[in-house]
């Protein structure tokens, strides 16, 4: 039986699979990822002389400087898009508190002791909100840094504060991003396939997001 390519989230497919992410959600995620990565690499290049070689992802350091703010704006727009898709599901639910209290079991891979999670667990939600608020700070500070020539000389000292805020906000997201990449690629097998093809096994859904799995199971009956 052939299945249509665009499926609703939570659809249970034959062969024991579940639709975890719709096509739009996946597209949005990857637009976010690619634009973020570009900003991260070019930004880090300007942050540290030891990472200056990273600016060559933009062609040359000077084009990296030209492109970084533009791609940054795209990143912000992608973030807003993601917000329209996920803001409701990223909101905190009462069960999140219990999950957070027992997060050490998650870290130690003793998942059997972990309270069940919804479609997104409390850690994923935290990552989302860090990126969301950091994106707003990065946009506001970045726009000022984009055109220093428009800044009157007597206000130029503001830049000496705004630039470190931009860098600090970026660093917080990079810390979160390192964990995100590690979990997606190495720590949680199946997760990467989920965000790439949109499907996960029923076992995966039940193991990692039991509340969500129970709900879609019920809805499909």
């Amino acid at each position: 039986m052939s299945t249509p390519t665009i499926l609703r989230e939570g659809t249970i497919l034959p062969e024991g699979q579940v639709v975890r992410y719709t096509f739009e959600e996946r597209a949005c995620h990857w637009v976010n990822g690619v634009t973020y990565l570009f900003c991260m690499l070019t930004g880090l290049a300007f942050y540290s002389p030891y990472l200056y070689w990273m600016s060559y992802v933009g062609g040359s350091p000077a084009t990296a400087r030209t492109l970084h703010p533009w791609v940054g704006v795209f990143f912000f727009v992608a973030m807003l898009w993601m917000h329209t898709l996920w803001k409701v599901q990223m909101a905190s639910i009462p069960e999140d508190q219990q999950w957070k209290d027992n997060m050490k079991y998650y870290i130690e891979n003793r998942d059997e002791l972990l309270p069940p999670a919804g479609r997104f667990n409390a850690g994923q939600k935290l990552f989302y909100w860090v990126m969301y608020y950091a994106a707003i700070i990065l946009l506001l500070t970045g726009v000022v840094m984009w055109f220093p020539e428009l800044m009157p000389r007597n206000l130029h000292w503001l830049l000496t504060i705004i630039i470190p805020i931009h860098a600090a906000a970026a660093l917080v997201t990079i810390g979160a991003f390192i964990i995100h990449i590690y979990m997606g690629i190495l720590m949680v097998p199946g997760g990467l396939k989920g965000i790439a093809y949109g499907r996960v096994s029923e076992e995966w859904a039940a193991h990692h997001h039991r509340l969500w799995y129970e709900k879609i199971k019920k809805d499909s009956r």
Partner: peptide, 19 residues
């Protein structure tokens, strides 16, 4: 370090998927 100490999560196939 986490990868070396705890490694990836494994799912026990039989145990899950019961509800």
């Amino acid at each position: 370090l986490h990868y070396v100490r705890f490694g990836p999560k494994v799912i026990d196939k039989k145990e899950e998927k019961k509800p």
